[in-house]
Each structure stands twice: as structure tokens, then as C-alpha cells.
Design a protein around this nucleic acid. Sequence first.
DNA 1: TATACTTGTAGTCAAATAAACCATAAGATA
DNA 2: TATCTTATGGTTTATTTGACTACAAGTATA
Lengths: 239, 239
Amino acid sequence: MKNPLPFLPTNDLSAAEVMSSITIDCCVFSFEKGNLEVLLVQHGEGISKGKWGLPGGWIKKEEDIDVAADRLLSELTGVKDIYLEQVRTFGKPERFPLGRVITVGYYALINREDFNVKAGFTASEAKWYRVKDIPDLIYDHNEILQASLNRLRGKVKRAPIGFNLLPEKFTLLQLMQLYTEILDVEMDKSNFRRKFLKMKLLQEAGGKQTGVSHRAAKLYRFDEEIYQNLTRKGFNFEF
Amino acid sequence: MKNPLPFLPTNDLSAAEVMSSITIDCCVFSFEKGNLEVLLVQHGEGISKGKWGLPGGWIKKEEDIDVAADRLLSELTGVKDIYLEQVRTFGKPERFPLGRVITVGYYALINREDFNVKAGFTASEAKWYRVKDIPDLIYDHNEILQASLNRLRGKVKRAPIGFNLLPEKFTLLQLMQLYTEILDVEMDKSNFRRKFLKMKLLQEAGGKQTGVSHRAAKLYRFDEEIYQNLTRKGFNFEF
DNA sequence: TATACTTGTAGTCAAATAAACCATAAGATA
DNA sequence: TATCTTATGGTTTATTTGACTACAAGTATA
């Protein structure tokens, strides 16, 4: 294959020089009991048997990489329409020990209630880990996870994607704890409440918390339509 | 090559199914006479002869992709130590008409004063275009450019990378015009000044503007060390 | 030399925001 | 009933913003 992009003064490179394998690796985040967690899978064979890593897989020949990421996630979690965002592509020559493999990192946000580990995985093969307590992972997966976390921390301040980690109805305190956990900052309950309500992004869902041994909080839901209107006018979160 | 990542319940894919060509495409931005511009190159042969596109090239077999981007840029512009940031990887199956080619998009910021088109390019082969006035580009390069611009607009509000587009010494008005141009918002001279100086990121460079037919403004320079200190403590731009 | 013209630089003031609190409400539990 | 916990609504003060005014420091030109 002759270099079809002859607009740089480099020598042509043969096909063998430029062909690579490309994979996808994905950080699946969820929020459980106040902790941000990520789904790891255990290798069953090969040189890294027993070690944990991010779930991932190959991109098919005629498949968009975003579509491939979506497919892999659906296969893995059984959930459709997952929030998914490309983070960055990792391509150190030595990152994969058996050959040159470039990987595209993604992160996904899912509501734990919807989640079911798909058939094919047993409990010992996939497990949630708190992001504050991650073991040594295979290859460069710690680096991919760190980059994904950084991206998530930035994004959560600019768009209300945090809702993807919560059930449909949630209390303001749950929402605040989500931000507290992701951003690792303390917040004032009262000020958070005022600030968030002023944005008018939340609808009262009508009900109240149940099963708590204190005054029950109102439940809210996120209003997609209002969000779309606000973003059109240029909108900015900050906490 | 047997699938070395057997931790997803998909069927193995043959090597032919997963090998791809990978390229890099780069938006090189500069700031000239109040306009943000991007460097485009013209195709000399092939099906898109005569059309303009982003400069790019192949990643070598044993080369990190960030390193490859840096190499391509040095070859193209003759400038070393360019500010370079990966934007995103583009992988629609049909994006490149002659086969599956996945490309990693980067953007770079350079100071126009340092820039020289490298030997191998004649004036007709590489040209600066205002980002407000971009023609139809080859393949998906308009999309890559748009994504790069969006990334630049976000980043410039969070880190002082705009300095990479300015000469070493610059006036506050030049700096403001840079932000005005990139973010496409009007600003108040006096308020911008107050806000920026309060950050204490700028050092007085000691001299004054020359060759202007009005009161000459003080020259400032960006202080890398102060910036590092501030970012350690958690720092946030907003305009 | 005087005057106009242009941009630089400093400051004012009212409105909006943020941060740190305080107080009461609404339940559950003992 | 008293007590405990979280929910929710306010207050107060300091800080930041945005709009605007005024004067300084030069150049150009009448």
C-alpha cells in the first residue's frame, strides 16, 4: 500500500511499518454507597493470568470505534444506551508485551441498579473496585484509569453527566455526595443545595426517601429538556 | 495472532480483522494580526489532488504516538518543543476512501515568529488559513479541526496555554485579543487587566511596546514557575 | 506649539456570588 | 416526651463581577 497521504516530506513506509492492532479499553464507573467504583476483570490465561485489568476488546474491521466501544460495553454489562466518552489513545510501543497494540481509552457511567454482569462472567471474573483502592493492573491500565478519572473530574464540573451514575430519582444529599466523592472536596450542604437548585436543572419527582431513620428528603429527577435549553445558551457548572 | 485479551466473551477475530493503518493529523494553530489561524497543506496527487487538508503522517512501528506527532510537527515547521495535545481518535470505517485508516487528532500551538515552513514545501503547498474561513477539507478533516478548536477553547480557560501562541514578550491587550479571538467573546479592557494581573502569573518584562502611534504598553512575560506553584494548589481560569 | 486622537492604566460603584454560619422543621427512636 | 439526625430555609459578610468614568502618556497633525 503506497502512502496515500503524500503531503509530508517523509519517506514512504511499507505496510508492515504502519499496520497495528487496535483495541478499546474502558473504565466503567458506578457509584455505590458513597464510593466511586470501577469495574475490573480478571485475566484467565496468558502471561498476566490472575491480574486485573480494564475490560476491553478488539475493534472490528468495518466498525466505528465509538460503536465498537458501545458494543463491548453492552456485551459486558447488559446495559444499553450507556454514557460513553472517549478519553485518549495510548500508544507506547512497549505498552503491550506481545506486539504493537494501540488502545483507545473510554470511560462509561452507569447506574448500578441497572447493572448485571453478563453471562460468561462469574463473580470471580469481574468485580467492582473503589477508585481509591485500585490494585496493580495489567499493561498500562493504571495510566488509562487515571486519565479517565481526570477526564471525569473535569467533565462533571461542566456538564451534568453525574446523573448517569444515580438512580432516576435521588435526593440532593446523594447528588452532593456524588460530587464530593468524584472531586474529593468537602462541600456545605446548604450552599450546594442553593446553588444547584438555582440552576433549575432538577424537577421534583414527587416522592420522598423511604427507609431512613430521620426526616425523609424530597426526591428529584434530572430534566433533560431543561438541560438542553441551558446548554444552548452557554452554561457552566462550577462547585 | 490469537486474541491476547481473552477477557471478553466475544469470538476471536483473525488478525486481518483487527489490523489497521494508523495516522496522525494535526491542527497547527497560530495567532497573527488578531486572527487565529491554522496551517493547511495541499495534496499534490491522488484522488484529492488540489484539495487542502491537515498536515499528518504515519506512525512508525516502534514509535509512541505522541513522539510521532512531535516528529511530524518538527519536520513540518522546523520548530522544536511545540505545545502539543492529543484531541481524539477518529475511526469511522468510511472516513478514508482507500481503506480502513484510523487517525489520531492533535493540535499544536506555535508562535508565528519562530515558524518557518520546512524545505520541501513551497508556498503553494502549505498555507495559513483563518479558522473563521476554512474551505472544504479532505476526508473528515473539517471534523477534526472542529474538535480541536473546541478542545482549545475549553483548555484555554483552564490553563495558560495561550502564551504558546504569543511572542515571549507581549502586552496585556495582545493577550486579551487572543482570548477574545479564541473564545469569540467581547471583553472589557480594564476588567480583563484587573482579573489577569490578580492571578500573578505575569512578570513585567521591563520594556515597552515600540513602533505604535500611541502610548506604548508595558511588556509582560509568562512566568512558568509561578504557574506551576499555582496549579499545585489547584487553580482555575475563567473569563 | 497646541490640539486632537488613540490606547494604556487606575479607580469607582452597584449588583451578583460565594463562604461560613445559624435556626428551625420533620421525622425516627428510645 | 425528650433526643437524635438529617432536611431545608435563612442571614451575614466578604469577594468578585460588570459597566463605566477619568486621567495618563504618547503620536500625529494643524
